[in-house]
Design a protein around this nucleic acid. Structure first.
Ligand SMILES: [Mn+2]
Ligand SMILES: [Mn+2]
Ligand SMILES: [Mn+2]
Ligand SMILES: [Mn+2]
Lengths: 221, 221
DNA sequence: CCGATATGTTTGAGTCGTCAAACTTTCGAC
DNA sequence: GTCGAAAGTTTGACGACTCAAACATATCGG
């Protein structure tokens, strides 16, 4: 069983890869996500490589091997099932669960995990819309595009909120911007790098494009 | 916040002290409970002492200071609330929850803990009948005596099962010997060091006195 | 009272994960 | 093309926790 630290690195590498499938995970980004210095990340990556969990060439990007991906998606499954459980069963706010799950994900047994999954009815997504990997390690990343890429007049359904910071999530919820909610793009202000959005049945608000990029949506209906 | 290791030592010291209030916790017992060598326990105890959590004189017993007791009862509270939650909410068997809680107790935040407590309606005891310390660190050890000390003919109500081993707990449950169940002592076989017990509405069984000592009971009714 | 045995302590070493700081390589702006 | 900043690596050190093994003390049965 991978150590708690190793699990955090694997998860960081996998989420970085999912975040921008174009570029591989880099040492600096991994270090930033895990919260260590670059030197520490380098030596840890060396260890992952030695253990057959990752591949990295000197001064190049870091990729997970198939067993690394398997282990990482296990951690992600635990993290997201826990988040879902905390929100659905214990009435946590979606802005509170990330930190909580960050520690619990290393302490739940396979047995407990299966109980949670069953209890929740095998959910496909967590409260933020992040897909929950299956028991076999398969992740289905739902095709969704950033809100920032939508045209004026577009009506969309929110699929996923990428930014996990509590402040951002609270702000989103306050305006009714949660997964499955509908919203309309009412204006684009290119020079100001912002857009105006009207959540269904709510007052409209202005979002910086950088923020709108953190919201993934499905086309209207 | 005390490290996970420190928490385990504190809990071990407190449960040993509660187990036999006559004699203080010893290095060997602590080492055995935590699962380390005596040398390791010695150095850890030195660290606890330096940190003001325990008191120990050379070649003498180990006691917790008031802040050590406070910290330990926090861990115990977490452990027992988690056990209760797993049994009541997630339908775990009472023989499975100890190990699970052993890890989770170090990963739940105060916030999550309070949610659990509220969800469960502020339970006084865990599934094994162990008392759950209050938020303020107060433990009320219910007065109960070992079944082994009961006379023939005595009708008792089970209060608490001390032995946390899965096999023992499964055996107990199989015979209806769970907290709050009633039972009658039908015979004593002093030479065989055993007693015969008839759980209410069940077939009677023979228990070694050593086993009966692990079952605490209230006098009949 | 005495020694065997149990119990406690010390020492030296190892693992894991981390940092700071010096160093090397890469890469983009000019 | 060059050069300076950004990114990656190496090194030496440290804290937390552990063990094995040598050692010291206590305790109990005879
Ligand atoms: Mn984590
Ligand atoms: Mn999430
Ligand atoms: Mn524990
Ligand atoms: Mn218990």
């Amino acid at each position: 069983m991978a150590t708690e630290t190793v699990e955090n690195y694997l998860k960081a590498i996998m989420t970085l890869a999912a975040e921008s499938p174009t570029r591989e995970a880099t040492v600096s980004r991994i270090a930033a996500v895990v919260g260590v210095t670059r030197g520490t990340a380098t030596s840890m990556i060396k260890k992952l490589t030695a253990g057959g969990l990752a591949r990295a060439e000197r001064y190049g990007g870091v990729t997970l091997t198939s067993s690394g991906r398997r282990a990482a998606s296990d951690v992600l499954r635990r993290h997201r099932l826990i988040e879902t459980f905390l929100v659905r069963a214990l009435k946590f706010d979606w802005s509170e669960v990330h930190e909580e799950a960050e520690r619990l994900e290393h302490a739940v047994s396979p047995r407990l995990l299966e109980r949670l999954d069953e209890f929740l009815g095998h959910p496909a997504c967590d409260p933020h819309g992040d897909p929950i990997p299956g028991r076999a390690g398969v992740v289905i990343e739902p095709a969704a595009k950033p809100l920032s890429s939508c045209k004026v007049g577009a009506v969309v359904r929110i699929a996923r909120v990428i930014d996990q910071s509590a402040a951002f999530l609270r702000f989103m919820a306050q305006h009714g911007l949660k997964p499955d909610a509908k919203a309309k793009v009412v204006a684009l202000h290119a020079p100001a790098q912002s857009m105006e959005v009207e959540p269904h049945g709510r007052t409209k608000l202005v979002l910086a494009l950088a923020a709108a990029e953190k919201i993934l949506v499905h086309a209207g209906r």
